[in-house]
């Protein structure tokens, strides 16, 4: 049997049965922008950053199974324009003040904004006012930066088996909550050794007393742009050394 492949931006990319477009692209070291995808967890296709055009239809690359001969458009001005607009909406919905964020330089949202040359938020800022949760001795939660990717929800529920996080509400009122009667992280069995503690792509779940340890210029996305780090992204685990 011949090797099955998709045509990604005109380039034949092989895939194994059961792989998604994202899996195939990552294996071939081709970058498809994404936020809610993580190789360790079941994809859910909610952030829509990985939207590609497969056989003429917009689909999420992280959930769409690859099919032999499928023509996929990825790195095109049209798709990147749409992705940039989605990033701008994510930026204005939260409080993304990069200069005062401990995650700056290691943040996927910021790195994608650089990759897609997002220079302004374009839309009007929401400036939400969501109280911080500093109750836990080891971890701080800043809900103002949440992009609702549900990676912490999936990690805590599917792997840690603790159900610490959940999304509550619908539409524009949807928000991240902590599963405790008090709503405080300290009143759960959450621990720094949980996978959920190390999976946030932005600056919501932060280990205390570690912020700004790495100087500007040496942080993850200072060194190389995210588009050049496909191999690391494809094989990353939540236990990889955090920088």
């Amino acid at each position: 049997m011949t090797q099955q492949s998709i045509l990604l931006d005109g380039l034949p990319v092989p895939f194994e049965e059961g792989q998604t477009i994202m899996d195939a692209a990552m294996a071939a070291e081709i970058f498809i922008p994404h936020l809610c995808h993580h190789p360790e967890f079941k994809p859910q296709g909610s952030c829509k950053l990985c939207t590609v055009k497969a056989s003429g239809r917009y689909v999420s690359a992280c959930t769409m199974p690859a099919r032999d001969g499928m023509e996929v458009e990825n790195n095109s001005p049209d798709l990147n324009d749409k992705r940039r607009t989605m990033l701008q909406m994510l930026f204005v919905e939260g409080n993304h003040f990069c200069p005062s964020c401990e995650k700056s330089g290691n943040c996927m949202l910021q790195a994608l904004a650089y990759e897609l040359e997002m220079l302004s938020p374009h839309f009007n800022q929401f400036y939400p006012n969501r109280p911080l949760d500093a109750s836990h001795p080891q971890v701080l939660l800043d809900f103002n930066r949440c992009i609702l990717c549900e990676l912490c929800v999936r990690a805590s529920r599917d792997v840690d088996g603790k159900h610490v996080f959940s999304l509550s509400g619908r539409g524009i009122t949807k928000h991240l909550i902590v599963n405790a009667e008090s709503g405080r992280l300290a009143d759960t069995d959450f621990s720094l050794t949980d996978k959920a503690a190390h999976v946030c792509p932005v600056g919501v779940i932060l280990e205390k007393r570690k912020g700004f340890a790495v100087p500007i210029g040496q942080r993850r996305y200072d060194v190389d742009p995210i588009g050049m780090q496909v191999e690391r992204l494809a094989h990353r685990t939540t236990t990889e050394e955090e920088i």
Partner: peptide
């Protein structure tokens, strides 16, 4: 031309907005 974080998204002064 907007130059710098404060012109672009309000920046540090905008952290009084809440």
């Amino acid at each position: 031309i907007a130059i710098g974080a404060c012109a672009v998204n309000g920046g540090l002064p905008a952290q009084r907005n809440h």
